[in-house]
Design a protein around this nucleic acid. Sequence first.
DNA 1: TTTCTGACTCGAA
DNA 2: CTTCGAGCCAGAA
Length: 113
Amino acid sequence: MKPETLTFFEKVYEVARQIPYGKVTSYGAIAKYLGTAKSARIVGYAMKGSLDKDVPAHRVVNKKGLLTGKHHFEGTNLMQQLLENEGIEVVENQIQNLEIVFWDPAEELNKDS
DNA sequence: TTTCTGACTCGAA
DNA sequence: CTTCGAGCCAGAA
């Protein structure tokens, strides 16, 4: 199908949907993978809509591993609970061992899908 | 149509 | 350490 028919949102969903269990990525990483590294904020905006989809939005955090989008989840610690449930350490809204659990779509994902 | 607002990021002051 | 501006795209008013 034509890429032009795919909106930025849809592309974000496809990438986010493929985040492996126990791993996380950043808005910027997804944006960069899509070719628009500077549109990281749009990725975040897209994630908000992804809450109604089969997208593990809780696995997407900002570049520093901070749970900046936790306020968009039901509770104040739901996002953290979900991450910890996957074996990810979260302290003070920040992911621990980020370098270990970080998943870069640009390196682990093929555009050919 | 324009204008504003965001789960962001980087660089500069 | 903090604060600001710019860049990006989509959707609502």
